[in-house]
């Protein structure tokens, strides 16, 4: 049985923010519940108040705006997986959505929930990081935007403040000549917490020289991280086999893995190198 709590159902976003403020810090938002309800059941979280934002229309919707793609925080993983704008502008997110938990969970889990939970094994942060995403955090005090890279802090720790709601994620519409990819390693082919996961995005000039690289690594540190040294090593260079191999090596060096029941630290670090190499090779081939 779940512990006792009060459940408030606001009709608008403004109402939700008021409710969160009134009961802060003992109130948490509830959307898909796929993490929260499990935590409640296991008594890992026991908030006095839940604010049910699952049906708030203001948190849904995916649109283009001012050269950005804007996705409502309440977008479910299933919606993200089937959305034509995402398919067009950020298919790497669909790569992650496709192997996110399982189809039943995908119909409830939300992007905001996945980000705010702060698990370093989460599937949406790596692709969003390589897309240079920022999150929109709303509260009674107003709205602030925080780059995702600053939003993720540590294990189960984000920059989300009490009484704040992650209302949207936005990223610059990727250039035509950029390609991204995501890959996760788990202990089975569905419904498996990541042993590690990797996303990369590269933007290349017509002559093949790399203008911009992003490499995000999950489950290899207390939070999803960018492999900055690896990224920098590729700037201004064509994506040759040697350059890619060096970047992969640097990416593996950036990891701070631990060993747990899902894998050893050594394994995670080694396979980081493999995945980064493979994904960079893949996207290098895809960019026209």
């Amino acid at each position: 049985m779940l512990p006792e709590f009060n459940l408030l159902t606001p009709q608008t976003l403004a109402e939700a923010l008021d409710m969160l403020a009134e009961s802060a810090p003992d109130a948490v938002p509830l959307a898909g519940g796929t993490n929260l309800i499990v935590d409640l059941r296991d008594r890992r979280q026991c908030p006095a108040v839940l604010v049910n934002v699952a049906e708030l229309a203001e948190l849904r919707g995916i649109r283009q705006e001012n050269g950005h793609v804007v996705m409502g925080g309440g977008t479910t993983i299933a919606e993200m997986l089937n959305d034509p704008l995402i398919a067009q502008h950020a298919p790497v997110l669909q790569d992650a959505a496709r192997i996110f938990a399982n189809p039943l969970v995908r119909h409830r889990a939300t992007v905001a929930g996945n980000l705010v939970y702060g698990s370093p094994a989460a599937n949406t942060p790596p692709p969003l990081l390589v897309l240079d995403a920022e999150v929109e955090l709303a509260s009674q005090a107003g709205v602030r935007r925080v780059p995702l890279d600053d939003f993720l802090v540590g294990v189960r720790e984000t920059a989300c403040r009490p009484a704040e709601l992650l209302t949207a994620v936005r990223w610059p519409t990727p250039a035509q000549h950029s390609a991204a990819a995501f890959r996760k390693v788990g202990l089975r082919k569905s419904d498996a917490i990541a042993v590690l996961n990797v996303a990369v995005r590269v933007t290349q000039r017509a002559d093949g020289v790399c203008e911009q690289t992003r490499i995000a690594l999950g489950s290899v540190a207390p939070r999803v991280i960018r492999a900055r040294a690896a990224e920098e090593s590729l700037l201004g260079q064509p994506l040759t086999e040697t350059a890619i191999a060096e970047a992969a090596r640097l990416a593996a060096e950036a990891t701070r893995c631990i060993s747990d029941i899902r894998g050893s630290a050594d394994y995670r670090r080694r396979v980081t190198e493999v995945l980064v190499r493979r994904l960079l090779t893949q996207v290098a081939g895809e960019v026209k």
């Binding site: 459940l7 159902t9 509830l30 898909g32 519940g33 796929t34 309800i37 499990v38 839940l50 049910n52 699952a54 049906e55 299933a78 399982n102 189809p103 039943l104 969970v105 119909h107 409830r108």
Partner: peptide, 21 residues
């Protein structure tokens, strides 16, 4: 998935939905 139901047409785990929702 043993608890799966259709909720407004979408297949979901009913163990992860509060009845009030």
């Amino acid at each position: 998935g043993a608890c799966a139901v259709l909720l407004n047409g979408a297949p979901v785990n009913s163990c992860l939905v509060l009845a009030w929702q």
